[in-house]
């Protein structure tokens, strides 16, 4: 039975990063020592914060800044007269520090700074409105081998007390070069078929300026240096800063527009990162008669796929 640890408030990301850096170093040391050992286990703990108050002005201002960065239209009201639900991307951002807190625990087996976000899947089961009191939970699960290392899912959940689960997000990270016992049989979940991938006709084009990473870092709290500093990016082997995957996915979600409805599933899988600045061709199209949209984003210049995903209304 998973242990639930209740925190008094959502942690501040700045402090977590400091801890993350420290633990990454420790893990690196440990991994060197125990190389090849198949003893990596996830901490069996769920972090929980209750009473997250979204009625305070800070949250409203934060949401406003988030909307401006990813291009979400102002909320307004729904046809039923309720205030519109906040976008799933914002709930991801809201819960992100708690997930990060799990990943910087001393007993988390993978180094925070080496983790690559490869997939994300989120479901909005009921609208979360500004002003709701929320309970946020996060845990790590499903540590599994991958062709290039190990993958883990970070699950975040947002509940509106008395109404039930409103949001569930699963972020899949890859720790490159981390060995799990049976790596030989690990599936390659990365879209390895990029050579065969043919871009569709675009429906949009994003001009992403050099500061895109810093702008999203400011609203998401994810200040990973690969997104915010050229030097930091170089340290991790990128020639320039790269866009947050979740920024591109959130922008695609925003550009689906009102067609996504109040409740929806939103998935994305990330291929090659978007080096900044960049011009990205995008196709966002209805996926069929049942409603819902698929989206792809790629480099118009080289045809390299950056991300694919879908937004599917639930109702």
């Amino acid at each position: 039975m998973t242990r639930v640890e209740t925190l008094p408030a959502l942690p501040a990301l700045g402090g977590l990063y400091a801890r993350g850096l420290a633990s990454s170093g420790r893990i690196a040391v440990r991994r060197t020592v125990s190389s090849g050992a198949g003893d990596l286990v996830l901490p069996d703990v769920t972090y929980r914060v209750a009473g997250v108050d979204t009625s305070v002005p800070d949250v409203a201002a934060h949401l406003e800044r988030y909307r401006r960065v990813v291009g979400e239209p102002a909320g307004g009201t729904t046809s039923a007269g309720n205030p519109a639900g906040v976008p799933a991307g914002f709930l991801h951002v809201l819960a992100f520090p708690l997930a990060t807190a799990v990943m910087v625990r001393g007993d988390f087996p993978l180094p925070l700074l080496g983790l690559v976000h490869v997939e994300n899947s989120a479901a909005v089961l009921r609208p979360v409105r500004l002003g709701d009191q929320l309970e946020v939970r996060a845990h790590a699960t499903n540590l599994r081998p991958h062709r290039r290392g190990a993958q883990v899912d970070l699950v975040t959940e947002v509940t509106v007390p008395g109404e039930g689960l409103a949001y569930r997000g699963v972020s899949t990270y890859l720790a490159k070069g981390v060995d799990l016992p049976d790596t030989s049989s690990a599936p390659g979940t990365e879209p390895d078929a990029r050579g065969e991938w043919v871009p569709p006709l675009p429906t949009a084009r994003w001009s992403l300026p050099a500061g895109t990473g810093r702008a999203y870092a400011a609203v998401s709290g994810d200040r990973n240096p690969i997104h915010t500093s050229a030097l930091g990016a170089k340290a991790f082997g990128f020639p320039r800063t790269i866009a947050h995957g979740m920024y591109t996915a959130a922008r695609a979600l925003a550009e689906v527009g009102t067609g996504r409805g109040e409740t929806y599933d939103w998935t994305v899988s990330f291929a090659k990162p978007v080096l900044l600045p960049s011009t990205v061709d995008v196709a966002i199209r209805p996926s069929g008669p049942g409603g819902g949209f698929t989206y792809q984003a790629w480099s118009g210049r080289s045809g390299t796929l950056h991300l694919t995903g879908a937004v599917t209304p639930r109702s």
Binding site: L201, P202, T203, A204, R205, W206, S207, V282
Partner: peptide, 20 residues
């Protein structure tokens, strides 16, 4: 002169229509 909602210039939009 890009379309605000798509970021594609009018010429790029028409190029898609032309191809179609």
């Amino acid at each position: 002169t890009d379309e605000p909602r798509t970021g594609l210039s009018m010429g790029e939009h028409q190029a898609i229509t032309t191809a179609t």
